[in-house]
Design a protein around this nucleic acid. Structure first.
Length: 516
RNA sequence: GGGCGCGUAGCUCAAUUGGCAGAGCAACUGACUCUUAAUCAGUAGGUUGAAGGUUCGAUUCCUUCCGCGCUCACCA
């Protein structure tokens, strides 16, 4: 028998003994009068004399996280809401049976206690218990009390243990909830309507990514998990929801890294009668507000460096390439050179000669080469919140042409913080005929082997043909914003149950199923 | 997918050049009515991720596989 099983059996036996004392093994409820974090907040400064007269009576519940038993009395720490409150259990106070129960408790058990607040000799706020109510047994041993659960894989697989042992994990997810709450409030206050659009789509559009495929049995049709809600949300703008937003999951069949999880949460919003300049202002205001709501300050720490959310820099893609152009690649390019294919090819060659690693395919459009140059040269330097604007048309099939340079450029920007892309926005293309040409261009990219190129979406073109007002649209990655605002270095630290390979246990079960 | 690293008791970690697989916590028994990583005395707990190879002898060296982490590529 393994140790785990042995402890499991021992504790089941203790549970029987607890029942024999007249306590139900799995009672239905406990009427607590106080919540432990509130008790700590309210009485942490109250001096001992003041707690004596009048006594602060209460019932509190929690999970036992530490036990110090000394013969006929003992101390425990009870954990609730990520905080711990000490309780003092004395045989004289809880009686023979009560103390018998106390001795049968293990670290990890849930109990409720009735008593009053006092301060110990070391001045720790403590509940003086006169009655213990058993609430639930922990049959499996919790990790070591001092180091907690460190194994990263186990932390993700058994998040319930991780959150019990590591209160800072709980904090991250509480903050994540606040981030979403803050975003909702921002848009609700501005008359945006929150909607939910299909996650299973016959065509996976609205972004450049490989989709997951699934199948509907009754209709006998393949469906794709959405890579973006974009095209559906714009159909809604056509239909008269002039301000609309959605916060939900996207699924992309791509690699997994510290910055990528196959399912991730995205905010997308569309505002009729706005262009990308309006969205730049909105984005700055939104992100500053969210930082304030969540952390109470516009400064957050990430990888040991400060991020100031109150101040954004704005750079065009061409400016960024020029600004961070490496010395080894020769003279910085002039603005005009970006419109000349031969000059752009020369820039790529100079970068590659300077040992800057970047992909380049001479058959691809000039615009893609420019975007790749940006990623190779500038992206990592964009630590302070940056609005990077004006993108090549070739990589932006859904954006409106830039009004003063319509041939090669579109009105699109991305938001970068700590070298990470967290947002993408543009003046939405609403000319159905131009949209059809863009899709056709994408189809030829697809034929060339680009699996991520956009597909033709006839119904979307039909929707645009009914007339979409001028509209600005934007997507913001909630997971990455959460990383930045909570100082979490990996996206897996801000996703409760990140995708992992099946563990040993699941593999065995799977094997058993296959044999049936 | 490529490169680097890791996997030892439930948890956190040791183990000299290849030479009897250990500690702390958790668990169990006992003592202890203000402890706080409680203390003290004792007990139990291992297919060293898996399979194979080299060797008198493998946690240690080699091969393959599995899982995880970091990193590069792709992506947001």
């Amino acid at each position: 028998m393994s140790l785990d099983q042995k402890i499991y059996e021992q504790r089941k036996d203790k549970l029987k003994q607890i029942e024999a004392l007249g306590q139900p093994a799995y009672p239905y409820k406990y009427d607590a009068t106080h919540f432990i974090p509130d008790v700590l907040a309210k009485y942490s400064e109250t001096p001992a004399e003041q707690l004596e007269n009048p006594r602060v009576e209460m019932r509190v519940a929690g999970r036992i996280m530490a036990v110090r038993l000394m013969g006929k009395a003992g101390f425990c720490h009870l954990q609730q809401g990520g905080k711990r409150l000490q309780i003092y259990v004395k045989k004289d106070a809880v009686g023979e049976k009560g103390f018998e129960l106390f001795r049968l408790l293990d670290i990890g058990d849930h109990i409720g206690v009735r008593g009053y607040l006092f301060r110990t000799r070391t001045n720790e706020l403590t509940v003086h218990v006169d009655e213990i109510t058993f609430l639930a047994k922990d049959l499996l041993p919790l990790p070591e009390k001092w180091h907690g659960l460190q194994d990263v894989e186990l932390r993700y697989r058994q998040r319930y243990v991780d959150m019990t042992m590591n209160p800072e994990v709980r904090e991250v997810f509480v903050k994540r909830a606040k981030i979403v709450q803050s975003i909702r409030r921002y848009f609700d206050e501005r008359n945006f309507v929150e909607v939910e659009t299909p996650m299973m789509q016959p065509l996976a559009g609205g972004a450049a990514a490989r989709p997951f495929v699934t199948h509907h049995n009754t209709l006998d049709m393949d469906l794709y998990l959405r890579i973006a809600p974009e095209l559906y949300l714009k159909r809604l703008v056509v239909g008269g929801l002039e301000r609309v937003y959605e916060i939900n999951r996207n699924f992309r069949n791509e690699g997994i890294s510290t910055h990528h999880n196959p399912e991730f949460t995205m905010l997308e919003f569309y505002q009729a009668y706005a262009d990308y300049h309006d969205l730049m202002t909105l984005s700055e205001e939104l992100l500053k507000q969210v930082a304030l709501d969540v952390n109470g300050t516009t400064i957050s720490m990430f990888e040991g460096r400060e991020i100031e959310w109150g101040k954004f820099q704005r750079l065009s893609m061409r400016e960024a390439i020029t600004k961070y152009w490496p010395e080894e690649a020769g003279a910085k390019p002039e603005m005009a050179e970006f419109s000349d294919r031969a000059k752009v090819e020369d820039m790529v060659r100079r970068l590659q000669n300077a040992k800057v690693s970047m992909p380049y395919d001479p058959k691809e459009p000039t615009g893609r080469a420019i975007a790749d140059m940006f990623e190779a040269v500038a992206e990592e330097h964009l630590w302070e919140p940056t609005i990077l604007y004006d993108f090549p048309l070739a990589i932006s099939p859904l954006s409106k042409n830039k009004r003063d340079e319509p041939e090669e450029w579109v009105e699109r920007f991305e938001i970068y913080v700590a070298g990470m892309e967290i947002g993408n926005a543009f003046s939405e293309l609403n000319d159905p005929e131009e949209q059809r040409r863009r899709f056709e261009q994408q189809l030829s990219e697809r034929a060339r082997g680009d699996e991520e190129a956009h597909q033709m979406d006839e119904d979307y073109i039909r929707a645009l043909s009914y007339g979409m007002p001028p509209t600005g649209g934007e997507g913001i990655g909630i997971d990455r914003v959460t990383m930045l605002l909570t100082g979490s270095p990996s996206i897996r630290d801000v996703i409760l149950f990140p995708l992992l390979r099946p563990g040993k246990h699941e593999e065995e079960e799977e094997g058993a199923e296959e044999q049936q």
